[in-house]
Simulated scan of single mutants.
Amino acid sequence: MSRWIMQDTSNMTDVAYQAYSLQGVSRTFALTIPQLPEKLRLQVGNAYLLCRICDTIEDEASLDIVQKENFSGDFIRVVDGELSPEGFAATLSGSLTDTTPEAERDLIRNVHRVIRLTHGFTPTQRRFIGDCVREMAAGMIHYQKRQSLDGLRDVAELYDYCYYVAGVVGVMLTKLFCDYSQEIAKNREQLLELAVSFGRGLQITNILKDIWEDRQRGACWLPRDVFSPCAFELQTIPDHRNDGCYLAGMENLIAITLLHLRNALRYTLSIPPEEKGIRRFCFWALGMALLTLRKINRHRNFRSGQEVKISHLSVKATIAATELVVGGNQRAQWLFDVVEKGLPHDFSLPTP
């Protein structure tokens, strides 16, 4: 996929702008979303951009927590059709600094185009997407207020955090998938339960990969209970990357993440084999997360996310391997078992 370059988009249709913006804010999703059935691509791409706007508000360093809470509340009203997107965009754009990537600033300036598409979806689709954005925005603010280098209280709080930043997306996608296909809807309850776990697996992988980059922003999303046997606090982990207790804590978190990625596989295999587009979408996300987890496991004392970022070759390998297994459950299970070899399976948490 070519590198995103800032363009004059004034003559683009809203649909074309959405595709352009997706490539700028997430090359991964720009790659995976087109794999979905045509009747889902626009809705899923649109939902992703709305969630990215929540992220942009959360990540802008110049905004204090009151401003973030106000912008998040206003954005929910924009999605619900209660507030002008143009006015919201003008105010938020004026508050963003160069620390926010140019592609995200461009997205904020063009919120009205994204929202026009949102408001053109069916009432059911709009409800699913709106519920997701509402929960995500509220959850992000909740955890922004608690953000520190002290980490999260325990694994239960880690799961709660992951629900708001990733699980809600899995729930929304599942509802859209079930609305699209009566065959998929037959497994609705099981899929909704597994969707939350799928989101946890992807998000904890990202948390582990981004430990050091998050610290630069004053955040640590590691659970303190996993590291409670250690003679150091999470605030001081840069000085203890090679400490046996830190490495053991990382091993536990890798094992916990793998448990959820196994549930991600169960989710994917519960999608009917004939829905190859949806399965491909899920397999790609799962495969890239599993390969990232393998790199983290091999380099538990890594110092930068770049050290454990998977290569373009690994991405291509994931895509190629998916084509071999996308239509069959047994082959997919076998491939997962092969790739997960060497990862820790057992974990233990201190008794409260």
Results as ranks from 00 to 15, higher is better:
L49G: 10
Q125N: 12
M12G: 04
V133A: 04
T118L: 11
L117R: 14
G120N: 15
A103D: 08
H142M: 12
L63I: 06
D106K: 11
Q18R: 08
H112V: 08
L42K: 15
I65R: 02
A19L: 05
Y17S: 13
L42N: 15
D106M: 10
S93P: 03
E60S: 15
R113G: 12
A89E: 02
L117E: 14
T13W: 12
K39S: 15
H112M: 07
E135L: 01
T28W: 01
I129L: 05
L96W: 13
S26A: 11
T99D: 15
R105I: 09
D131K: 07
C51D: 09
D131H: 09
Q18T: 14
T28V: 10
Q18F: 00
G130T: 06
A19W: 11
L50I: 01
L83Q: 08
Y48N: 11
G73I: 00
Q125T: 15
V79D: 02
D74I: 00
L22V: 07
L117I: 15
E86N: 02
S93G: 11
G94D: 11
H112I: 03
T100C: 13
F88H: 01
F88I: 00
H142D: 11
Q35D: 00
Y17M: 13
S95A: 15
V66H: 04
I53D: 05
Y143P: 10
T32W: 03
Y20N: 08
L36R: 12
T56A: 03
T28N: 06
R109M: 11
G87E: 13
E104K: 10
L31D: 01
G94K: 01
F71C: 01
A90C: 09
R41I: 06
T56I: 09
P123L: 02
R113N: 12
N46Y: 07
I33Q: 06
A103R: 13
G120L: 12
E58N: 08
P123G: 01
L22C: 10
A61M: 09
Y20L: 08
P37C: 06
G24M: 10
N11D: 12
K145S: 11
N11C: 04
R41S: 08
P34F: 04
D14A: 15
E38W: 13
S72P: 00
L31H: 03
C54P: 01
L117V: 15
P101S: 09
T118F: 07
F128M: 03
N70L: 04
Y48P: 12
N110T: 06
D106Q: 14
Y17T: 14
Y17L: 14
S62G: 11
I33F: 10
L50K: 03
F75R: 00
A103T: 11
F75G: 03
S84K: 02
D131I: 00
E82H: 00
M140S: 02
R116E: 12
